[in-house]
Design a protein around this nucleic acid. Structure first.
Length: 827
RNA sequence: GCGAGAGUGGCGGAACUGGUAGACGCACUAGACUUAGGAUCUAGCGCACUAUGUGUGUGGGGGUUCAACUCCCCCCUCUCGCACCA
């Protein structure tokens, strides 16, 4: 046998089919209301230069699903595009002296070729790049519509500033106190910025998590925690000798009789008025200054020791009329609740520590159920619910009832109200960089903030159509800034912030349905048919950022009338990382595997097959070079099997008469149908392609074994086996299967082939193995007819020679017979 | 600290609603065919021992059950997320 017939020539074959797909465009789709649609989407890549193994894995998984669903008869939309705005382009531009646009489009061209070399079945006619004005002009329009609906606003706040990126970050983009992109320490800074009112949708974002049955629990939980809704009481404590009052939020109104002091944040607006002109002023101001500096400096995992100083001021507990001293404390967050906390040291561990440190009273007002007096001395705060004591009219109520009663009391007396707070903050979208979508706003000295009229959109990024154009941050580009006010016509200045790139990725999946639509952001005829995304696939690292923003945007687009769905992604698959030597691949660790090298050496199909086989999709995948050899070996084995039996394809009839088959043929026929069942099951239940591939391997091993042993397998059975193998493998290794399909005389390409169905009767085993246990230990096996009844099984088991040896002369205490499984004899 | 997930051969991983633990692949060992083999084929491959048999074994310890990788309780380790959220 010559070399060439022994191994398949992946280079030639893959090029051939890629050319075919390029020319015939079998993956181009249009709306077809007679067919059920299926939208498969992988998170689109940032065009960083070249694809990496994570992309290979992600896109392979998506491609298998797309191809599989096509074979199941769905009208499958499977698009690809580029998350093309972002900072690396600017950095690269500075380093290499080329324009960010040029750098980005070069990368896109290169990476597009790489994706095509993987044989991914995208509808390339839908490709989009978010840095293209034809995309971001609609984003600008959406921004303006949101502004009209008061979902966008501008405010001055403390923001997270990343020095190295020279821009602001949203809270979600700060990871362990560092920038999510460059890992540099983030520092607070006070700036103007634009915000999306995502908190307006907090309740819906939370409630609709319940509808996301197709999402991993982990992601749902992460989002729920991120939104962090809590219910409680907002209550006013009048400040002594002042008209001001201190408003606090608590989730434990039942402990309000145990308040012994107040803690307020160093940034609290009342700090100044409380201490101005008092003997405490100096000390408090020093403390505030010191603490703010400390917070900036603080590294992530160090929890600051609790400190505070007395302001000299008192407020009054509206429930007890007691005087309550007010402290400024370093552990109170201004960003959450109202920046002021009622301190109940007996029932809150932080307050307890603080009280211990500054020798403040601890007053128990909750005791464990069944107790009715306070314990002598607490060693730590009692934070569980319980029964109220020393709480006036609320004494003896349990915590839950008391919470309600106290909230109602506060409401009835005008001192407080039921309140809900969220951990979620509004989404700050302003970025002070160049390579992003300009925010379409004009600042006029007379008219204030004026939206750019719709007819003037897009506000094109200056210089982006000129390779020598400036790519300085917009606030440095005077020509861009100078404009006239659309309202009064006087000279005015353009907004220079660009939008966070997460804005682009929050609606791209919708634009894929109508990438060329010119009359608005989205074409209702297209979105109505294609949305939502049926299966979304990407890394779990986007569990909060991208997925939460996209959910928010979907709801906004719905309320603006652009889409008719509530949630963008029906099912979500979060795939694990590709690791090597137990660690994430990274240049610094020198353990990076380059997809290009692999594809050249093994071909795309082998790379695809291995990345599917080595682990189930949701787990991390350990890259193993020898494992890739194994995948390659398997494909060659299939190749040889098909090549050696090409003749059976020519005229073999379909399998009809089972009775006429010899044992070997019957076994192979059965195995074929069992394999269809197993593969279909693996894909349908959880996309566990690793077990699907194992099943096909077993089938191929059996067929190749029988052929090697020169069993004269019935041609119809052998043909069925080989064709089934190709059909089952096609979604995973498409070039390879198409080639063999064609070589074996099929007139139509596999793109139009149907997924095989299994015949339950053919798959049924007629003899089964029954396990015989004595006291739970396996002692023997019985080969019996599959419909042997339980009494017979018991009789056969007891008569078994090996079993008899173990049960001896005694009479069995108990015999358990499990249908078609086992017999357990207890002695 | 809180929350979620995971611990199975030398390795990646299988095991349906409790019912043969280790499918499939890699690595390894022996053999066959070969000028050659990083090709192919055959056989073996958890561990231990008094080896054609017995014991033992799914992070550790208890429990439920005729029967536990699977269910319950306690503990250990790792990964991820959150982290003074009042």
């Amino acid at each position: 046998m010559s070399e060439s017939s022994n191994k398949y020539d992946f280079t030639t074959i893959e090029a051939k089919w890629q050319q075919h797909w390029e020319a015939a465009r079998p993956y181009k789709v249009t709306v077809d209301s007679d067919r059920k649609k299926y939208y498969v989407l992988e998170m689109f890549p940032y065009p960083s230069g070249r694809i990496h193994m994570g992309h290979v894995r992600n896109y392979t998984i998506g491609d298998v699903i797309a191809r599989y669903k096509r074979m199941r008869g769905f009208n499958v939309i499977h698009p690809m595009g580029w998350d093309a705005f972002g900072l690396p382009a600017e950095n690269a531009a500075l380093k290499r002296g080329i324009h960010p646009a040029a750098w980005t489009y070069d990368n896109i061209a290169y990476m597009r070729d790489q994706l095509k070399a993987m044989g991914l079945s995208y509808d390339w006619d839908r490709e989009l790049a978010t840095c293209d004005p034809s995309y971001y002009r609609w984003e600008q329009l959406i921004f303006l519509k949101m502004l009209e609906q008061d979902l966008v606003y501008r405010k001055e706040t403390t923001v997270n500033w990343c020095d190295s990126c020279a821009t602001v970050l949203a809270r979600e983009q700060v990871i362990d106190g560092c920038c999510w992109r460059c890992d540099e320490q983030v520092t607070p800074r006070i700036m103007h910025g634009w915000f999306f009112r995502i908190t307006e949708y907090a309740d819906e974002l939370l409630a609709d998590l319940e509808t996301l049955k197709g999402w991993p629990d982990k992601v749902v939980t992460m989002q729920r925690n991120w939104i962090g809704r809590s219910h409680g009481l907002s209550c006013d404590f009048p400040i002594e000798g002042s008209h001001e009052k201190l408003t606090i939020f608590t989730t434990r109104p039942d402990t309000i009789f145990g308040v012994t002091f107040m803690s307020i944040a160093v940034e609290h607006p009342l700090v100044d008025t409380l201490v101005a002109g008092t003997e405490f002023e100096q000390e408090v101001r020093d403390f505030v200054r010191k603490t703010i500096a400390e917070k900036q400096r603080k590294s992530v995992d160090e929890e600051l020791e609790k400190h505070g100083v007395f302001t000299g001021a008192y407020c009054v507990n509206p429930f007890t009329s007691e005087r309550i001293p007010i402290y400024v404390a370093n552990f109170v967050l201004m960003e959450y609740g109202s920046g002021a906390v009622m301190a109940v040291p007996a029932h809150d561990q932080r307050d307890f520590e603080f009280a211990r440190k500054y020798d403040l009273p601890v007053r128990q007002v909750i005791v464990p159920p069944g107790h009715d007096t306070a314990s002598d001395a607490l060693e730590e705060a009692y934070t569980e619910p319980g029964v109220l004591i020393d709480s006036g009219e609320f004494s003896r109520m349990d915590s839950e009832a008391a919470k309600l009663a106290i909230i109602n009391h506060a409401r009835d007396h005008g001192i407080g109200r039921r309140a809900t707070t969220y951990r979620l903050r509004d989404w700050g979208i302003s970025r002070q960089r160049y390579w992003g979508a300009p925010i379409p706003i004009i600042h006029c000295a007379d008219c204030g903030i004026v939206p750019v009229p719709e007819k003037d959109l897009p506000v094109v990024l200056p210089g982006s159509d000129d390779p020598n154009g400036s790519h300085a941050p917009l606030h440095q580009q005077e020509d861009f800034i100078r404009t006239t006010c659309p309202t009064c016509g006087r000279p005015a200045r353009r907004e220079t912030d660009t939008m966070d790139t997460f804005v682009e990725s929050s609606w791209y999946f919708a634009r894929y349905t109508c990438p060329d639509f010119m009359d608005g952001p989205l074409d209702p005829d297209q979105t109505g048919y294609w949305l939502p995304v049926d299966q979304y696939i990407g890394g779990v690292e986007h569990a909060i950022l991208h997925l939460l923003y996209s959910r928010f945007f979907t709801k906004v687009l719905r309320d603006l009338g652009y889409v008719a769905i509530d949630e963008p992604f029906k099912n979500l698959l979060t795939q694990g990382m590709v690791i090597k030597e137990g660690r994430k691949m990274s240049k610094s660790k020198g353990n990076v595997v380059d997809p290009n090298d692999l594809i050249q050496r093994y071909g795309a199909d082998t790379v695809r097959l291995f990345s599917l086989f080595a682990a189930p999709p949701e787990r991390d995948l350990e890259w193993n070079a020898q494992g890739v050899d194994g995948a390659s070996r398997f494909l060659n084995k299939v190749y040889r099997l098909v090549q050696a039996n090409k003749t059976v394809f020519a005229g073999a009839p379909t399998v009809q008469n089972l009775d006429g088959l010899d044992t070997y043929s019957r076994n192979l026929h059965r195995k074929t149908h069992q394999t269809i069942k197993r593969v279909t099951g693996s894909i349908e239940t959880n996309f566990h392609f690793n077990t699907a591939i194992s099943a096909v391997m077993e089938l191929v091993n059996m067929a190749a074994g029988l052929v090697n042993e020169n069993r004269n397998i019935d041609p119809a059975v052998l043909r069925e086996c080989c064709e089934t193998t190709l059909l089952l493998l096609f979604p995973m290794v498409p070039h390879f299967c198409e080639e063999l399909w064609q070589q074996t005389g099929h007139n139509h390409t596999m793109d139009t082939a149907q997924w095989p169905t299994f015949d339950a009767e053919a798959a049924r085993e007629n003899s089964i193995t029954i396990i015989v246990q004595v006291n739970g230990k396996v002692r023997s096996r019985l080969e019996v007819d599959s419909d042997t009844d339980n009494e017979t099984l018991e009789r056969l088991a007891l008569a078994d020679e090996r079993v008899m040896k173990f049960i001896g002369a005694g009479k069995p205490k108990k015999i358990i017979v499990v249908q078609k499984k086992l017999v357990n004899i207890v002695i």
